[in-house]
């Protein structure tokens, strides 16, 4: 029963209009009160730059989008804008459905609490009810393969286990939109493959995927449409094969 997908089918689930965000080049730069509260029009300072500007696109439910670009061209910034953990200085970012952000996935976990407490905390913060979590708890633990450590304080887990439980929780959120930033670079190959299968499962279930990666193989595997970011602008929005071709033409891959 794809309740969330069907109610908004047709209309875009993510709608980005002329979005731009401004950062200061040197983080230790001077700040004054006026700068903090002045309207954006009155502030144009030389030390500022726009990692993203004039970005416009729509995403329809069920689409799988890969974001392509070199380091520092605004990919992660775009992902964070869509996750609404940062806000645009220009334009709008509208996300019409719940989001499961696989960004800094271990960020919400508390070292001193047990795995069980952490699962309830993180899933709850992302909007799951207690009853939902109760129903999925065993599934989450089983996926992460840490059944023996449910009542162990989180800090005693190995780093691989930490990532596994975090991925397991976020990927069970049942939100219609999934954001994936290269989190899966960690963990052993078997678990990574398991994560990828999980993502495919979710895609088959009608989820919308927003995927940032440098790995061409992964991009082709999951995505149908690509966004190519360069120098803070959206250069190309099209089928993933075209986007990768354009990217490779601009920045030819090194011979291996």
């Amino acid at each position: 029963m794809s309740a969330t997908a069907s109610t908004i089918a047709g209309s875009p689930v993510i709608s980005v209009r002329d979005a731009g965000i401004r950062f200061r080049r040197n983080r230790r730069g001077r700040r004054n009160f006026k700068d903090l509260f002045a309207g954006s029009s009155r502030r144009s300072r030389p030390g500022e730059f726009w990692p993203l500007r004039n970005v416009t696109f729509d995403v329809r439910p069920g689409e799988a989008i890969g974001v392509v670009g070199r380091n520092g061209q605004g990919k992660s910034t775009l992902l964070k804008l869509v996750a609404e953990v940062i806000l645009p200085d220009e334009g709008t970012v509208r996300v019409g459905a719940g989001v499961a952000p696989l960004i800094e996935i271990t960020g919400g976990f508390v070292n001193d609490l047990t795995v069980r407490d952490n699962v309830y905390l993180t899933a709850g913060l992302h909007g799951m009810t207690r009853a939902d979590i109760d129903a999925r708890f065993d599934e989450i633990i089983e996926f992460a393969e840490i059944a023996d450590f449910v009542d162990t304080p989180y800090k005693h887990l190995s780093s691989g286990m930490k990532v596994r439980i975090a991925f397991s929780v976020i990927s069970r959120l049942e939100e219609p939109v999934m954001l994936v930033d290269e989190v899966l670079a960690v963990g052993d190959r078997a678990f990574r493959e398991k994560c990828y299968r999980r993502i495919e499962e979710l895609l088959a279930g009608g989820r919308t995927l927003f995927f940032v990666s440098h790995n061409e193989k992964d991009l082709r595997r999951f995505c149908t449409r690509g966004l190519y970011l360069d120098k803070g602008a959206l250069v190309l929005d099209g089928p993933i094969a075209d986007v990768l071709a354009a990217y490779n033409a601009d920045y030819p891959p090194k011979q291996k």
Binding site: M1, G127, T129, A131, D132, E174, E175
Partner: peptide, 16 residues
Amino acid sequence: MVGSAGAVQRSNASRY
């Protein structure tokens, strides 16, 4: 299959 409409429909106040 996306399911769990409950989590989506909960009001903002109760999520807060």
